[in-house]
């Protein structure tokens, strides 16, 4: 974004100065432009091209192999009559809100905790960040065993003598989506902690001293002074988490396989299942296109506020 904008903004001024500046600059940038060409080509052909190809296929009747006919909105009609897809959409909404919110709150608390200059800080930091180093498949399997009522926590507590103890969320259709949230938060809040801790360490010491002189309690300083200051870090963390939400697939496959029944299905799994196992490229690409539309719908206002309106104000 920055590189694309700055020459355009700078050139009129340069032109006013020296008439021969433009070709010289142009020649100087030629090398850089040539170097960027492969990247640009990859972005346009691979990313954009594949995106358009996917959308195109969603209007065809493709089954195992892609075909180029026109089937109108047939795939979309089937998609929106499909219980599993609708439930997937609700599930990803629940997961997204709780996962991002939970990670931010929990990660922030961990960062504040570490920020107290606790002893063995390095060890604790590693411990908290460690889950993130594991693949979601491992996370999913471990949590699956831990939550399985006949193998894990429930059995352990019952064996300890509390026969009435029940914790069977993972086999309960109403609660299973929350077990995914728990596993997700466990996995990702360490990353949020690392990002926010870096931010907290960047807060000016003088602010703390001033607050102490004024007798403001520490929690108040964190909430009203430090948190607004590290706003960009929070945004970074949120974006990273949001990406994880959209591509949520491996955790579900490893932990619940979308079950019991279809209770923990998510859109990415719907796409994968139909793309490969069920030989229905048309329906899969229709679902993928709906995911794309949703992401764009969420991102568009943000991009507008962040870039378009800002540049508008500047000129």
């Amino acid at each position: 974004m920055v590189t694309a904008r700055s020459p355009a903004a700078a050139s009129p001024r340069m032109l006013g100065g020296r008439a021969d500046a433009r070709p010289a600059r142009w020649r100087r940038q030629l090398g850089a432009k040539l170097a960027l060409l492969p990247l640009t080509a990859v972005v346009i052909v691979v990313y954009l091209g594949c995106m358009l190809w996917t959308v195109r296929l969603s209007f065809s009747s493709s089954k195992l192999l892609p075909v180029g006919d026109w089937a109108g909105l047939q795939q979309y009609e089937r998609l929106f009559a499909n219980d599993r897809f609708l439930l997937s959409a609700i599930n990803i909404g629940i997961f997204g809100v709780l996962f991002i919110g939970g990670c931010l709150v929990f990660g922030f608390l961990l960062a504040v905790f570490i920020d107290q200059r606790v002893r063995a800080e390095g060890v604790l930091r590693t411990v908290f960040l460690f889950p993130h180093a594991m693949s979601l498949v491992v996370t999913g399997l471990a949590w699956q065993w831990f939550l399985n009522p006949t193998l894990g926590l429930q059995k352990l507590v019952r064996d300890l003598g509390f026969a009435g103890f029940t914790f069977d969320w993972i086999v309960n259709q109403q609660m299973v989506i929350y077990t995914l949230v728990i596993a997700g938060i466990w996995q990702a809040s360490g990353l949020v902690m690392a990002i926010l801790l870096a931010g907290l360490r960047g807060v000016d010491e003088d602010l703390w001293k001033a607050a102490r002189v004024d007798g403001i309690p520490a929690w108040r300083v964190y909430l009203s002074i430090a948190l607004p200051l590290i706003g960009p870090m929070v945004v970074t963390a949120t974006v990273l988490l949001a990406v994880q939400v959209v591509k949520l697939y491996d955790l579900v496959v490893a932990m619940t396989r979308g079950g019991p029944g279809i209770a923990s299905e998510v859109p990415a799994k719907f796409v994968m299942d139909h793309l490969f196992e069920r030989n229905n490229i048309g329906l899969a690409t229709a679902a993928a296109s709906m995911m794309l539309v949703t992401v764009v719908a969420i991102l568009a206002p943000w991009i507008y506020a962040r870039y378009v309106r800002e540049t508008g104000r500047r000129t």
Partner: peptide, 13 residues
């Protein structure tokens, strides 16, 4: 496979 998968969804529900 398409119908088989769709029926799977119903049976498992």
């Amino acid at each position: 496979p398409d119908l088989s998968g769709a029926l799977d969804d119903v049976i498992t529900q």
